[in-house]
Amino acid sequence: MSALKFCANISWLFTELPEFSQRAQAAARAGFQAVEAAWLYDSDPGELRSVAERTGLEVALINTPPGDLKNGDLGLGAVPGREQDFRQGLDQAVQYAKILNCKRIHLMAGRVPTGTARPAIAVEMEATFVQNLKYAADILAKEGIIGLIEPINTRITDPRYFLDSPHQAAAILQKVDRPNIKLQMDVYHWQIMDGNLTQNLQKYFPLIGHVQVAQVPDRHEPDSPGEVNFLYLFNLLEKLGYQGYVGCEYKPAGSTEAGLGWVRKYWEGKK
């Protein structure tokens, strides 16, 4: 069994430092092989690329632009009537990914429109998402990039997010039927929405293109008090032969550096 590869999400970790490039340098000093981030679109991707080249870091994942956050957007992939905005955002994400040599883009689904009941629009939103994902698959295939869809829990984090369970995501991926569109497993969201992590991980493992971790319910370090036994889960990922990155998308309980004991212990155990 090969050891897992961990990736620092610099939208969440090392936020003691203001710039993404500074956070990436801190991640490299801490021993990470890669970084990921949500939205880099207000920063110069060239600076982060320079840091990555100097340190040997890989930029493992970025998200498509969220849309208009102030007006309630959080991705546009499944939002009817916003197809052109989704395509423009996808183009921007691809340009950033090419600069950063990033091979994974999270294609954000978005929220159920305000004032609309989920059951009334769910079929239309799914059809929109499938259409947009097929379009994205063709664009990304030309660049050798994997597209990812991520269920986000609607019980705590975002009640209006459209894609909220691994089962819903798997059904959509079946309809999209493109080898370069895969499932992003965020353990935090999966545990809150469905639990049953062992069975779900085994069932959907062939679809998984990226994993993210945070303890439940407080979204702190994996070794903080909570519901999930990450030693067991990491061992299961190893046994299944997971070769991708495990993204550290959690809120440090204190400073980022002070909370890295769990990953250093893992690294030491694999030497």
Rank of each mutant, 00 (worst) to 15 (best):
T15V: 15
L148Y: 06
Y242D: 11
E126Q: 15
L76E: 12
Q84A: 11
I156Y: 13
I152N: 01
V211F: 05
L48N: 01
D42E: 14
E83S: 07
E249P: 05
S11V: 07
V263I: 15
I105Y: 10
R87F: 13
P18V: 08
D194I: 02
Y41W: 08
E16H: 12
G89D: 09
G247S: 13
F14E: 05
G261A: 14
E150M: 03
M185F: 14
V263K: 01
P119D: 14
R178C: 13
G261N: 11
W39N: 15
G72T: 07
F162Y: 15
A78I: 02
G77D: 00
S224C: 04
F162G: 08
R178Y: 11
K142M: 04
T15K: 14
G244Y: 07
A37W: 02
G254Y: 13
I181V: 15
K265Q: 07
N196Y: 09
P151Q: 00
G67T: 02
K265T: 12
Q191T: 05
E221N: 02
L90N: 06
A24H: 11
Q84S: 14
F86I: 04
F86Q: 03
G46H: 14
G259T: 10
E143W: 07
V123N: 02
L207C: 04
V246Q: 06
K239T: 02
T128A: 08
A24C: 13
E124L: 09
A170Q: 09
I62G: 06
D68E: 06
R155N: 01
G46D: 07
